[in-house]
Nucleic acid binder design. Structure first.
Lengths: 338, 338
DNA sequence: TTGTAAGCGTTATCAG
DNA sequence: CTGATAACGCTTACAA
C-alpha cells in the first residue's frame, strides 16, 4: 500500500475521460452528473488522489493551516488547550503551526511575523506583549485572530478567557466561609491582565463579606517559581501572619509549596493553602492540595470552534468574548479557622 | 507599519526595472551584478517583499514545514522536546505542524497521513504503533523521518533516544550501593521499547552486582497513573516487601506517590523511592523525590539538527542512532538500608 | 453539465 | 549576467 501519493487532478481526468475542470468541480461540491460522480469517486479512490493544498492555496490564498502562538510549550495549561484545538481543527482539515515565544515579548513579535509569512489562515494566540498594532492589522485584513487567556484592552478582537476575577473570588470565598480573616494572596505582576483580575476578585469578595483588607497580605510576584517561593516566605514572616493563602498560578504554587516544605509549615494546621491550575500536582502533595482549576478543555473547544466560524466568514457576533467558569476544588489543605 | 504584505517578485521586478528571473536568481543566491544586487535588496526592503512559500512549494515540492507527531501534548517530556525542536527549525525558516495522537495507535496513523497530505518536508515522530510499513515508504521516498524516544526494530531510520537501559541501571545501582537487596521496579508494558530497555537495565545491574532477582519485584504496569498506583500497592502487600522502588515513567510515579500517601508509607524510612522524568514534581513532594532525568533539551536539539542535515540532503551517516545519557538525581527519598 | 483556458507566484531552462 | 517563457496543480470565469 502506497501512503505517499502524487497523482493529480490531471491523472483523475485522464482516468475518467472527463476534464480537469469537471473533476475540480466535483471535488469542490459542484454540480456533476450522478453518473460521473460515481466514476470520479472511483478514480479518486483507485489513484488515491489527494488534492495538493499548495497548488490550491496559490489560487485561493488559503493554506488550511492555523497558527497557534503561545508563551510556552512547557506549561501544561497552554499545551492542554492547544491539544484540544489541534484535534478539532485537524478534523476539519486544518493543520496547526504551533510556535512558542518562550515568554519573551520580542520573540512573540518575531514568531507572529513568521506565522504571517507562512500565510496561515488564522491565528490563535496568547499575547504577553499586548501589542495592539500588529493584531489590529491582521483583523483589518480579515485574518481571524482569537486571543486566549489574556485580554488586550482597546482591541476589538475575539477572545476566550477564564473568569479570572471570579476564580479568585470563589477561592477566597471558600476561605472566608471557613472563618479565615487574614488571607494572603500571591498575585502575578501588576498590569498583567490575569493577575489584575485575580487581584480584583480577592478585593471584591473581601468587600462583599465585609472582611477588612490588609494590603500587606497582597503580594505581587511575577508568576515564576522563585517569586512564589519568596512571596510565601514574606507572608510567613509577617508579624500578623495570614491563616490562609491563595496562590494564583501554577509556577508560583510550586514555589510556595517548596517554601512551605523548607519552613516546615504544617498544612492546614498552621496555614491553609489553595493553589492554581495543575490538578495532577494537587494529588501528590500531602495533604492533598486545594486547587482552582481552569476549564482548559472548554477554552480550547471554544477557541477552535470560534476560529472555524470566522474561517467560514461568519462574523455575525464579532467581536465575541467568552469568559469561562473556573472550578474550585477544596481538599484537606484548607481547614476551618478556629 | 504594514505587517501583512502582498508584494510579489513581479513588483520587485517593476520597481527595479529588472526581470522576474533576475530577482528570483538573486533571492536564491545566484549570480547577479553587485550593482543590481544592491538595487534589488533596496526594492525588497522598500516593498517588504516576502517570498510566497506556497508558490515556491508548488515548483520545488517543498513546504518548509516539518511535521511533528507525538503521543500526547499533555506530557511535559514530549512538549519540552518539541519546544526545543520548534525553536531550532523556526530559525531556519521551517514551520512545525504539531499533531498529537492522544496515545491512540489508530489516530497515530490518521495523523501521519494528515501530515503526509500536508506535504511536510520531514517528519519527527514518536511512534507507539511501531508500524514499519508507513515509515519505510516515507524513507524510500527520501522524506526524512526521525524517530524519537522509541526504537522500531528492523527499520533503518534515524533515531534519537535516551539511554533507557542505563537509566534504570544507574538508578538501581544507586540503590544497590546503598545496601538495598530487594528492589522493586514498576515497568511499562511489555513489548514497548522504552519499558523493555528499562527492565533490562534493572536485570543487568542485578547481575553485575550479584544481587539475586525476585521476579515478583518486577511489576509490569502500563505507564498510566492508575497502573502505577496499583503496582505500588501490590509491591507493598508482598510478604517480603522491597526496601526500595524504581518507577519508570512520570505518570506511574504520580500514581505511586498517591498510593504511598494513601498507605501512609514513610519515605524513605519504610521505603526508598526513585521516580522518573519530571524534575519539578520532585521538588514539591516531601521528602524531595529522587528522579531519573531524561535529557529533553539534548534530544530536541539532536533531532532538530539531524533533521536539518537530512533536509540539506546529507545522508552521509544514515541511519544514525543517538542514544543520549540520562541523569540520576538522588535526594532524600532514598536512604541507606540498614 | 462540461470543457477551455487564464492565471495564482515561483523556479528553471534556454537563448541572447 | 539577464530575460522570455514554460511549467508546478489547482480554481474559476466563460463558452459550448
Amino acid at each position: 500500500m502506497e501512503v505517499y501519493n502524487i497523482s493529480t487532478i490531471k491523472d483523475v481526468a485522464k482516468y475518467t475521460g472527463l476534464s480537469i475542470a469537471t473533476i475540480s468541480k466535483y471535488i469542490n461540491g459542484g454540480n456533476v452528473l450522478d453518473e460521473n460522480k460515481k466514476i470520479i469517486q472511483e478514480a479518486i479512490e483507485a489513484l488515491d488522489y489527494k488534492r495538493n493544498e499548495m497548488a490550491r492555496g496559490l489560487k485561493t490564498n488559503k493554506t488550511m493551516t492555523i497558527g497557534v502562538l503561545l508563551p510556552s510549550l512547557e506549561n501544561i495549561f497552554f499545551t492542554s488547550i492547544v491539544s484540544i484545538i489541534e484535534g478539532i481543527l485537524q478534523e476539519k482539515g486544518y493543520g496547526t503551526i504551533i510556535c512558542d515565544f518562550k515568554e519573551d515579548k520580542e520573540l512573540e513579535h518575531t514568531k507572529l511575523e513568521f506565522l504571517i509569512n507562512k500565510h496561515v489562515d488564522g491565528i490563535i494566540m496568547v499575547s504577553y506583549s499586548g501589542e495592539k498594532k500588529h493584531i489590529q492589522s491582521l483583523i483589518d485584513k480579515k485574518i481571524p485572530v482569537i486571543l486566549l487567556d489574556r485580554m488586550i484592552r482597546g482591541l476589538d478582537c475575539d477572545i476566550v478567557i477564564a473568569d479570572n476575577l471570579n476564580a479568585s473570588y470563589q477561592a477566597v470565598e471558600e476561605l472566608i466561609m471557613r472563618k479565615h480573616k487574614r488571607i494572603g494572596i500571591i498575585c502575578g505582576p501588576e498590569n498583567t491582565y490575569t493577575a489584575d483580575e485575580r487581584r480584583k476578585g480577592y478585593i471584591r469578595v473581601h468587600e462583599d463579606y465585609n472582611v477588612e483588607i490588609d494590603e500587606e497580605l497582597i503580594k505581587n510576584a511575577d508568576y515564576t517559581v522563585v517569586s512564589g517561593y519568596k512571596a510565601l516566605i514574606d507572608l510567613w514572616n509577617m508579624d500578623k501572619r495570614p491563616s490562609a493563602v491563595l496562590v494564583t498560578n501554577y509556577e508560583m504554587t510550586i514555589g510556595a509549596i517548596m517554601a512551605i516544605n523548607d519552613l516546615n509549615i504544617t498544612i492546614p494546621n498552621q496555614l491553609s493553602l489553595i493553589g492554581f491550575d495543575n490538578i495532577q500536582m494537587a494529588r501528590i502533595v500531602r495533604p492533598p492540595l486545594s486547587i482552582v482549576e481552569q476549564p482548559m478543555k472548554e477554552i480550547g473547544e471554544t477557541a477552535a470552534n470560534l476560529m472555524l466560524k470566522r474561517l467560514s466568514d461568519d462574523y455575525s457576533d464579532f467581536p465575541s468574548t467568552y469568559r469561562l467558569k473556573t472550578k474550585v476544588h477544596i481538599k484537606e489543605s484548607v481547614s476551618t479557622n478556629i
